[in-house]
Design a protein around this nucleic acid. Sequence first.
DNA 1: GCCAACGTTGGC
DNA 2: GCCAACGTTGGC
Length: 150
Amino acid sequence: MKYWLMKTEPEMYSIDNLKEDKRGSWDGVRNYQARNFMMEMQKGDLVLFYHSNTKTIGVVGIAKVIKESYPDHTAYDKKNEHFDPKSKKENPTWYMVDVEFVKKFKNTVTLEEIKNNKKLKDMKIVQKGNRLSVTPVSKKEFQTIVEMSQ
DNA sequence: GCCAACGTTGGC
DNA sequence: GCCAACGTTGGC
């Protein structure tokens, strides 16, 4: 089993939205590296749910992959903000996965706390200038984050 | 295939 | 709202 971190802006879609919906499709990813990571995801993989671009930045909870990558249909929809004319149904450019709500942390593990933890210095989100919305996380890093949330 | 211009992301 | 750091685009 693998572990991941996925970023979202809570104004757009927060952990509370996922909790309410129980499950959600992670569509709209239009970055090749992030897409490639999504295509590696397997059913049962766990995801650190990260809030960016907000007051309290950090990991707010856990989600689980329940459907492995499949073509992102929002790329074909002209009215969708993520429409991409280059993505063809015969040969899709973009993919998405489905995730399920697992838990919301009692305490958000903030970016500041992550930065201050030497064990987490290799995480992509603490390295400067990283803008990837989907990144792999090691088992150790995942467990450390979970411990920090308690 | 290079690279300048432009757009986006995301922390502050 | 600013701006640094990237990714993407398009002219040559």
